[in-house]
C-alpha cells in the first residue's frame, strides 16, 4: 500500500536556529575579511610582534568593523520593526524620514557646539533621538486613518519629512560658522570611520538595550504585521506596543545617525534579504536582520574602502547605490505586496 506522506513544514524554531547559525557564520567571515583587507593588508601572524600591525588592528580596523556592525545591525532591525509596525514592506528609517529627523537633531547639536556630554551621554545622541522621534510620530499620525494605515500617505509623508529635514540641515549649515559647517558636511556624508573604542562603548550603552527590547517584542511585531485589529484580538496591547517601538526605533536611528551620518536603505535591503532566505516570520526576521545588518554594512564599508583605493567612498553612497534599485524592484513587484 502506498503511503502518501506530505513532508510537514519545518517548525519555526528549527528555521530560526538555522538562520542564526548561517548568518553568524556569514558575519564572522565578512568581519575577518574586512579586518584583513585594506590598502595595507593585515598580517595576523605579526600581531604579536609588530606594534604597527597592532595599532592598525586595535585602533583602526577592528573599531571600524565593529562600528559598521553596530550601525548596520541597528538600522536593519529598526527597518524590520518599522515594516511590521506600519505593515508596509517599503518602510525603513530613511524612507519614513526618521533618519532625516535624526539628522536635523544631530546637526543642530553640532552647530551649537554641543559636543559636550550630559553625565557621560553625548548631547548629539540625545538630539538625534529627539529628531527621529518627532519624525516617526509625525509620519505615523499623518498616515493613520482610524485603524488603517494608508501606505501611500505613509511613504509620501516620509518623503516630505525628508525634504524638510534636508532643507533644515542645509539652513543650519549656512547659518553656523564655517568650521562647524564643515564638520556637519563631513558627518552628513556618512562614515563608520572611528579611532579606538570610546564611541563604541557609549553607543553600545544605548543600542544593546534597544536590540534586546525589540527582540523581546518580536512576538508582538509578528502579530502586528498581520493587522492591528488581529493583533489586538490576539492579546497584544497595540497602543503600548506602538509607543515602545516608536521609542526604540528612534533611539536606534537617532544614535546611529548622530554617529554615522546618512546611511540609507540598510533597513530596507537587509530585512527583505532575510525574508527571502528564511520566510516571513518576524521572530526570525528580527534576529536575522540584526546579524545580516552587521555583515551587510561591514561589507559595504569594505567596498567603500577598497573599490577605488586610495580614494575612499562614503559608505552611505555604497548602501544607497545598492538599496535604491532594490527599493524600485520591490515597488515593481507590488502585486506580491498587496498593501501597496
Amino acid at each position: 500500500m502506498a503511503i502518501v506522506t506530505k513532508a510537514p513544514p519545518e517548525a519555526t524554531a528549527v528555521r530560526l536556529w538555522r538562520a542564526l547559525a548561517l548568518l553568524t557564520g556569514l558575519l564572522l567571515v565578512v568581519a575577518v575579511v574586512a579586518v584583513w583587507a585594506g590598502s595595507r593588508t593585515l598580517d595576523f601572524a605579526s600581531l604579536r610582534t609588530d606594534p604597527m600591525a597592532r595599532t592598525l588592528f586595535f585602533r583602526l580596523r577592528l573599531p571600524r568593523v565593529i562600528m559598521a556592525a553596530l550601525i548596520g545591525s541597528s538600522l536593519a532591525v529598526a527597518g524590520a520593526a518599522l515594516q511590521a509596525l506600519f505593515r508596509n514592506p517599503l518602510a525603513e528609517p530613511a524612507t519614513l524620514g526618521v533618519s532625516g529627523g535624526g539628522a536635523v537633531g544631530a546637526s543642530l547639536a553640532i552647530a551649537f557646539g554641543w559636543g559636550s556630554r550630559v553625565s557621560g551621554i553625548p548631547v548629539v545622541f540625545i538630539a538625534g533621538f529627539g529628531g527621529a522621534m518627532v519624525a516617526v510620530l509625525l509620519v505615523h499620525r499623518i498616515a493613520r486613518s482610524g485603524t488603517l494605515l494608508l501606505p501611500g500617505a505613509l511613504l509620501l509623508a516620509g518623503v516630505v519629512v525628508n525634504l524638510i529635514a534636508s532643507a533644515a540641515v542645509l539652513a543650519i549649515q549656512y547659518m553656523t560658522d564655517p568650521s562647524r559647517a564643515l564638520e556637519i558636511l563631513r558627518w552628513i556624508i556618512g562614515s563608520v570611520e572611528v579611532i579606538g573604542f570610546d564611541t563604541i562603548w557609549r553607543m553600545l550603552l544605548f543600542l544593546a538595550p534597544c536590540w534586546i527590547a525589540l527582540l523581546a517584542l518580536s512576538r508582538e511585531l509578528h502579530l502586528l504585521a498581520m493587522g492591528e485589529e488581529t493583533a489586538g484580538a490576539l492579546g497584544v496591547n497595540v497602543e503600548r506596543c506602538e509607543t515602545a517601538i516608536h521609542l526604540i526605533c528612534s533611539v536606534l536611528v537617532g544614535v546611529t545617525v548622530a554617529v554615522g551620518g546618512a546611511i540609507g536603505f540598510v533597513g530596507l535591503i537587509v530585512p527583505h534579504a532575510v525574508r527571502l532566505m528564511f520566510g516571513e516570520d518576524l521572530r526570525i526576521v528580527l534576529p536575522g536582520s540584526l546579524l545580516l545588518g552587521a555583515g551587510f554594512l561591514i561589507a559595504a564599508d569594505l567596498v567603500a574602502r577598497i573599490a577605488f583605493d586610495p580614494i575612499e567612498l562614503p559608505v552611505g553612497a555604497v548602501t544607497a547605490l545598492v538599496g535604491g534599485p532594490v527599493f524600485l524592484w520591490l515597488l515593481h513587484r507590488r502585486q506580491r505586496y498587496s498593501a501597496l
Partner: peptide
C-alpha cells in the same frame, strides 16, 4: 489584505 506574503499556516 495582508502586507506580507505569510503562508496560510503561519
Amino acid at each position: 489584505a495582508l502586507a506580507f506574503p505569510f503562508t496560510v499556516l503561519e
